[in-house]
Nucleic acid binder design. Sequence first.
DNA 1: GGAGTAGGTTCGACGAACGAACGGACCGAC
DNA 2: GTCGGTCCGTTCGTTCGTCGAACCTACTCC
Lengths: 148, 148
Amino acid sequence: MPPRTRTDDWPCPIARAADLVGDSWTVLILRDAFGGIRRFEDFQRNLDAPRSVLTRRLRQLVDDGLLVRVPYQDRPPRDEYRLTEKGRAFWDVLAAMWRWGDTWAFEDRAPIVLTDAETGAEIEPMVVDANTGRPLEVRATRIRSRRD
Amino acid sequence: MPPRTRTDDWPCPIARAADLVGDSWTVLILRDAFGGIRRFEDFQRNLDAPRSVLTRRLRQLVDDGLLVRVPYQDRPPRDEYRLTEKGRAFWDVLAAMWRWGDTWAFEDRAPIVLTDAETGAEIEPMVVDANTGRPLEVRATRIRSRRD
DNA sequence: GGAGTAGGTTCGACGAACGAACGGACCGAC
DNA sequence: GTCGGTCCGTTCGTTCGTCGAACCTACTCC
């Protein structure tokens, strides 16, 4: 196909994010990265993705600044892929996807849960307005230009 | 290409969500739907997406239960696409993407903001743990099987 | 009857995804 | 010293989705 249409220059934050996340392998690579996976072979084994696609996606994520390549041995030279701050910030999006998927994409609920490492308590991601602390209401939301 | 690898039967909520949202046109269609767009021609004009792709994505979203086709006139027969409850719940994911894109995908900030329809106040989406009300901390998060 | 609107389908060219095989650089064991 | 294994890719052929433009059907309005 002709290269997929790019939206990374649109004025909308969703369009720009979609340009990166608008690909399921990319999402799953990031998910694994949050799970502590850093090496090519581990991503490949865990995702069972074609190696050529994996190479391409990892390179893209590095170019976009969500991952960095860090050497972890000299001979033979090997790099691992680590999340940057920009990449780590993306966890919020994945958490929102987790919540939605858990609620809407299973018969009942998902067989796995997010937990707090220390208390062991279940974590249930939820999206709120930082200014009021309340859940979002779609119908009452508008889009405006910043200076208005 | 061979049909893209499906992940809609994986046990992970993110994988299932990614199977739907793992496509930038789908994300943008949903964004527009939240903005009140309902008709084929309006989606097409606004996104400037190939009509054939648009047809396919809309059909997929209907099949997946995020949109429904509702007739709005008889002759000639015309349907519009409306968000279902499942689709409306997806706004949380788009809001998280908005926040991330706003923070990380512009030189400064995005030229547009979300606002409350009544007060006009800016809305800043934020992801928290519903149980503690606190922001998520990636490093302190684990994945566990539900019965454990 | 000619232009316009709405919601698609069809077509050809291009190139991305898949999957399997190959390669190169190292290691350790036999 | 060569055989197997590990790690990180690249290459290749087939399949099939994307793009973009053109086309089609069923109306309405002038």
